Simulated assay, not measured.
Amino acid sequence: MMSDRVPPGIRASVPNVARMYDYYLGGKDNFAADRDAAEKVLAIIPEIRGDARNSRAFLQRAVRHLTQAGVDQFLDIGSGLPTAGHVHEVIDGAKVVYVDNDPVVLTHSRALLGRSPGVTVQEGDLRRPEDVMAHAADVLDLSRPIALLVVSLLHFVTDGEDPAGIVHRYRDLLPAGSYIVLTHVAPDTMPNKADDVSAVYRNATSPFTPRRRAEFETFLDGFEILEPGIVNTREWRPDPTTDTSRISGDYHLCAVGHKHP
């Protein structure tokens, strides 16, 4: 767990969505307020820990697949606190830019990843695509394809902020041949629990807005969706050597899209 000493500018008394996710994954970079809020979510959906693990495993499989497809540049927006199996640990020799707007995430990421070869940590907000891409261009070659990773993040963007429009702006800015990796919590999988979970997150740093599959599909307009299409995270090209049957919980929809050259 984090030290009781709180860095300047950090609101330890307000549950933070990145630190709550770290707690779900079994991490130690969280405060009491984060743990209390996370436990309230776990009381509603005990399987949330398994869901977080499924989402992380999907990200790793997608990154490996894109590396095999020849992608060697990755832009991870809303990357969260560094945990086991972070993107740069899954691939070898590629450039990775982690982007987040959370001061805790930035501080810890820079401290832990500052000397990792090929890794850059940048401040940025998903809701400002032009700024994020311009800053990423300091490191990545935007004349060549990149992989844009937006995992476990879009459900923290409100309807009024137009999440589909934000994704489409990134689509238009991405180099031809690029890929996008998306996940989103869908109430289709927990129709009787979504409102209760949203109520917990109303007291956190970002509200929680689950969206149904039909809405998630619109985010991918203009991309060719790779097989097996839009599925739950554990269903996307599962690793035959890994037994996921004991990992309960799969509330994320996911997809990998390709922007044709």
Results as ranks from 00 to 15, higher is better:
129 P>L: 10
189 T>Q: 13
139 V>L: 08
113 L>D: 09
154 L>D: 01
191 P>A: 07
138 D>T: 13
215 E>C: 06
197 V>D: 12
154 L>F: 05
138 D>Q: 12
116 S>M: 10
125 D>F: 04
168 H>Q: 14
101 N>G: 10
168 H>A: 14
121 V>C: 15
195 D>K: 12
106 L>M: 04
128 R>Y: 07
160 G>C: 04
199 A>Y: 06
178 S>H: 07
180 I>F: 12
195 D>L: 11
212 R>F: 10
138 D>G: 13
169 R>F: 01
139 V>D: 13
112 L>G: 05
155 H>N: 00
150 V>N: 10
200 V>R: 07
108 H>T: 03
195 D>W: 04
100 D>M: 04
186 A>V: 14
150 V>F: 04
105 V>N: 00
107 T>S: 15
172 D>H: 07
168 H>F: 05
190 M>T: 05
157 V>G: 02
161 E>N: 01
183 T>P: 01
129 P>T: 06
159 D>R: 09
209 T>K: 01
132 V>R: 04
164 A>F: 11
105 V>R: 01
189 T>R: 14
143 S>F: 08
208 F>I: 02
112 L>F: 05
173 L>D: 07
131 D>E: 15
184 H>C: 12
167 V>H: 14
123 E>V: 04
105 V>L: 00
100 D>V: 05
134 A>K: 14
195 D>C: 03
196 D>Q: 14
130 E>A: 13
154 L>R: 03
152 S>D: 08
207 P>Y: 04
187 P>K: 12
186 A>Q: 08
153 L>G: 04
175 P>N: 11
102 D>W: 02
134 A>I: 05
